[in-house]
Design a protein around this nucleic acid. Sequence first.
DNA 1: GCTTTAAAAAGTAACTT
DNA 2: AAGTTACTTTGAAAAGC
Lengths: 188, 207
Amino acid sequence: MSKAEEAKKTITIENVVASTAIGQEIDLKSVTLALEGADYDPEQFPGLVYRTKDPKTAALIFRSGKIVCTGAKSIEDVDRGLKKVFKKIASVGIKVDPNPEITVQNIVASADLGSVLNLNAIAIGLGLENIEYEPEQFPGLVYRLDSPKVVVLLFGSGKLVVTGGKKPKDAEEAVERIVKELEGLALL
Amino acid sequence: RLRKWQRRIRVSNATERNLAFALSELDRMASALGLPRNIRETSAVVYRKAVTKNLIRGRSIEGVAAAALYAACRQNGVPRTLDEIAEVSRVSRKEIGRTYRFISRELGLKLMPTSPIDYVPRFCSGLNLKGEVQSRAVEILRQAAEKELTSGRGPTGVAAAAIYISSILCGERRTQREVANVAGVTEVTIRNRYKELAEELDIEIIL
DNA sequence: GCTTTAAAAAGTAACTT
DNA sequence: AAGTTACTTTGAAAAGC
């Protein structure tokens, strides 16, 4: 089996960020009082923070009725988490759009290339103008891909992080491209 | 028409005033760090290029000046850490690093990450260590680079560990605390790095 | 640009035990 | 010296300063 396929199998979605809207204005003050565990400090941030335990997510609820959901480990968990948030909001007497459109904004995934990497050599191989590698500031090498449009963080251990994608396939394509590029440079 | 001219003169004055301020700022920081004239000149060149490419927009003159100085040190092979630059700057280390990455990319500086080897002469003289200790530390770092022991590690920490080992091998032992203070890292970091180097390079250290 | 959320990677740092 | 917590980097949305 190719290294690209081996690496793809190690892909783990670590975080999914999504946005939606209930189609109704919300009085955050009263919702804060009605919901236990709701954090709302308008001086610090305009959104109300509400956390769900299963799935473990954090929802940012705004006055406009727009909501941001973060922390989910899968797109399915985003839906499950938001369902719970919607029910909570509805239980406080607020009308909720029965079919809210949920948009995935970002997916963070991790993976393992299976062998250690020489980041200095990779920096030269990929081209110093295409990467950012400042070990004094951060141990990872930053590589931006145009297609899929994601950012990859490569580490000396061979582990990597792919972020900026909107669908799981973006991470898969990114890993495949990275593996092929590194193999082409004989650096993997 | 007259206003147009006045405006141009005003802009020109402002531009020159800003440049003069930036250059004096570069000089002030360079003096505080005891940097030689060639580095001040390099930093001035980097700063002027940044001005030419309008990279100052939305950024503070001091931030760009600090980043230009940081870049100049690296270009000349005598790097200063972001912490050292930040100490003589009015800008935070975080902003200097950010600005450096920005101008580095925009000006196409294409600088390789700082090599631990470039820190050896300065750290060694700060510890009053002779040339023999230096060359031995450099040799350790060469081997370390070949064996992939530097990927992702902070250059100062690796350099400090190599110097620590070298000082012992040369019979001019410096404590981890002394090396840590000169290199600006913690003793824990030196310990982690030197154990790794000793193990992977098969260096026996008798304390 | 900042503020807040979540999560991973690996290195470094700052505390406590 | 070991453990814990926390900060560095990346990405995106929300409303407002």
